[in-house]
Design a protein around this nucleic acid. Structure first.
Lengths: 184, 184
DNA sequence: CTTGAAAGCTCTGTAAG
DNA sequence: CTTACAGAGCTTTCAAG
């Protein structure tokens, strides 16, 4: 996790999006799994030298492919054992700004607009059901909010950041099983 | 993001869960926002010396509070622009093992069991709608799966890892506004 | 892209207050 | 907890092939 050296003046917006090759994808995959890797180790894993891999990682950062490196916190043990997904139905379509203001709350981790029988989808991690109640109160205070449906998480079996990789499991699987797909 | 020094043989399971104080919380908050911080910088931010903060971070790692440090990848630009939440209704309650096997797929990022009008909630990020089709096909191949509802994400306005911090915004807010809560 | 080498910063541990 | 010192390691950069 720690930093080293002195070149750390990156963190910009994507200047141009050049296509990434196989090396870049492998680098992204390794770094997405563990960012606390030395460039020497990373290079040996992807089959490149340390200077080369360093150059690529620097470019991946400046081009925005890598948005940052963060520490993964264990939710339950850090005082926020209460996880919930909240579906929000709202009237009108322009009053979403109010919802976006919820991003200020540290308890709100995700805000998406979705297609389906609801408009917005929120992911909230907080300390207690009382905090969720507070969020709902804030939601219903918005005139455009018509209804909400909350899905309180009972158990989390898997939760991980986006997996980078060349493994297109689902697409290939589906294509392969298309011929002999027999549903019981 | 690179590593340094030599002490990197951590990554165990929580031996004991000691309560974390204000310093620990501030450290977790900083590291959750940016894990590529030097211990010197981190110490100055939380008001501790470098050796002290290093000792605390090491303890937070071994106790499982910090599960790891990963690179945040920009989903859309890394070839997986298709994000969806899938609700799964299943009959019976013991056949969830089949669903847990989905964790093998890199496209599946989250698996929760929830309370509400559905049993399981999946978060899936893949390359195309075809890949989502593949997942649904695999779901419906399970005898216990009764129905699914998919919520395809149109726009993501916020998506970030768990925020550690002392800011209990929602609870305090709700408690404060309880007296003069007037809904329009 | 590679190897090799020099320089710099950080980490890591030890010691003492 | 703090400051201070010293050893080790990795990064970072430059050179040349």
């Amino acid at each position: 996790m720690p930093n080293t050296g002195k070149t750390e003046s990156v963190r910009s917006r994507p200047p141009e999006a050049r296509p990434l090759d196989a090396f870049d994808r492998r680098i992204l995959g390794e770094l997405a799994a563990d960012a606390a890797l030395s460039y020497a180790d990373l290079g040996s894993r992807v089959g490149l030298s340390a200077p080369a891999v360093h150059e690529r990682v620097k470019r991946l950062r400046t081009t925005g492919r890598i948005r940052g490196t963060v520490a993964l916190l264990d939710g339950p043990s850090t005082g926020k054992p209460f996880l919930a997904f909240v579906h929000v139905d709202s009237t009108g379509w322009g009053k979403t700004q109010e919802l976006l203001d919820l991003a200020e709350l540290p308890e709100v981790e995700e805000i998406h607009s979705v297609a389906g029988d609801t408009c917005m989808l929120l992911k909230v991690r907080c300390q207690s059901s009382r905090a969720l109640e507070g969020l709902l109160a804030r939601l219903y205070a918005m005139p455009s909010v018509k209804a909400t449906r909350s899905y309180v998480v009972l158990s989390t079996y898997l939760e991980r950041p986006p997996q980078a990789g060349m493994t297109e499991t689902l697409e290939t699987e589906w294509a392969a099983g298309e011929a002999d797909d027999t549903r019981p």
